[in-house]
Design a protein around this nucleic acid. Structure first.
Length: 425
DNA sequence: ATGCTCCTGCGAA
DNA sequence: CTAACGTTCGCAGGAGCAT
């Protein structure tokens, strides 16, 4: 019954601080790709009123004023730290769901109820000692409630000291707490649904919990109905353990500067298709179609706008980079129009299925694996894994890459590159 | 009336 | 100096189509 949600505090900022302790106590922010928006904020930055997702250029003035230190996002570093945290958390439960780069659900079924608060503290201490990352723990009878409990732990509500176990608070305290929490704090209740709920007079978590589930289902959806039931302690959302492969793979980026020519778009699309194909093979899947899209900058309202995508079916379900690039470029040629300032492109692999058991209708449409291509891609993957990305690349992805994203504020890859670690020290 | 595929909207981190 | 606003994934529901 009981489940814990462990969530790292200000995760990307905490990763940066791990290798640069001078950042402790200072206002630190990590920016999204292309140094665009704030995606992780230290408590000092939050206190300055800077919101999640705020564009960097809008906060630059206040940032200079208060000495905010900004980093480009270093996903190689965060991914590596994340896997260490997750491995540590795995030792605390027989069943773990890694929900995101900085969050994990732990099944605590069978653990004595009165020991859970201490167990949560033990988890915090261990992660802090072994990895150095601060985390908060929420414990409750459903995943939705555990998320909410985690929020309370983060805000230090109900005297939680980093761990909040809803099983340990009495009914009247729980009610008061839920009445004080706005409904948008609930997992699954975003901007739009909050607006609609507010129009119906539902503004607090307690009001949503006591709402009529059938009414909520007809007025909203089965998803929101499940949320209401979960708030009442009825588990509707299963713990998902790793194993189910992805159904689609998307690789896309905004460009550091506007792109006009088909040649440059070709380069970017070749590069993205290459990255996507690597993920596909890592999953052990094949794709049956490739979607490619391009678009101008929607924030430049005075410039002519254009956005288009196209799906290119493949003859056979496939995981060969060369074939996927070919399909993507074929699609791009059809949707490209000259004369626009393009800001972004992307490649999506769709109709994914496991490579091993590609089902065919007996004779018709039987997938034939191209063994030579297979061996070629395996060799390239192995070399790039060992020697670094793009040691062997497809020529079409270019070498100057004028379109690559801005990353002016990168920290070194402390844990994955010896040379960068040495330079940093 | 029923069952599909495709597309869009929404939410999450 | 200016201009500068993320990425990736799954799910549900409705539209459109075929049967």
């Amino acid at each position: 019954m009981p489940v814990a949600l462990v969530d790292c505090n200000n995760f990307y900022v905490s990763c940066e601080r791990l290798f640069n302790p001078k950042l402790e106590g200072k206002p630190v922010v990590v920016l999204s790709n292309n140094d665009g928006c704030a995606v992780s904020r230290s408590n000092e930055v939050k206190a300055l009123g800077i919101k999640m997702g705020e564009p960097w250029f809008k906060m630059e003035r206040i940032a200079k004023q208060h000495g905010i230190i900004a980093f480009s996002s270093n996903y190689t570093l965060y991914g590596d730290i994340s896997s260490r945290v997750m491995a540590t958390l795995a030792t605390f439960t027989p069943r773990q769901e890694i929900y995101s780069i900085d969050e994990s659900f732990l099944d605590l079924e069978g653990f004595p109820a009165h020991t859970l608060q201490d167990y949560g503290q033990k988890i915090r201490r261990t992660v802090k000692r072994n990895i150095g990352i601060p985390v908060c723990v929420g414990i409750a009878s459903t995943k939705t409630l555990a998320k909410l409990a985690n929020h309370c732990a983060k805000k230090n509500l109900a005297g939680s000291e980093g761990v909040c176990d809803f099983g340990q608070i009495n009914e009247s305290a729980r009610k008061a707490l839920f009445q004080s929490l706005p409904v948008n704090e609930v997992w699954g209740i975003g901007r739009k649904i909050t607006e609609s709920l507010n129009l119906l007079g539902i503004e607090t978590v307690e009001q949503l919990r006591t709402a009529d589930a059938d009414f909520i289902r007809t007025r909203f959806s089965v998803v929101v109905e499940r949320t209401v039931r979960e708030l009442n302690g009825i588990a509707c959302i299963e713990l998902e353990q790793a194993g189910t492969p992805r159904q689609q793979i998307l690789v896309s980026r905004s460009f550091g500067m506007p792109v006009v020519t088909l040649e440059n778009l070709n380069e970017s699309v070749t590069y993205f298709a290459t990255r996507a194909a690597e993920k596909l093979r890592k999953d052990g899947s094949v794709a049956n179609s490739v979607c490619v899209f391009i678009r101008t900058n929607p924030f430049k309202i005075n410039e002519p706008q254009y956005e288009r995508s196209i799906v290119v079916p493949l003859m056979q379900p496939n995981d060969d980079t060369a074939m996927l690039i070919k399909a993507a470029l074929f699609g791009l040629k059809h949707i490209y129009l000259p004369g626009y300032q393009y800001k972004k492109s992307g490649v999506m692999l769709m109709g994914l299925q496991p490579k091993g058991v590609m089902q065919g209708e007996l004779f018709d449409n039987m997938p034939v694996t191209d063994e030579k291509a297979d061996i070629r891609m395996k060799a390239i993957d192995a070399i790039n894994r060992k020697m670094g990305r793009d040691t062997i690349a497809f020529a079409g992805s270019g070498t100057r890459r004028s379109w690559t994203m801005r990353r002016d504020r990168m920290s070194p890859n402390y844990t994955t590159r010896w040379d960068e670690l040495v330079k940093a020290s």
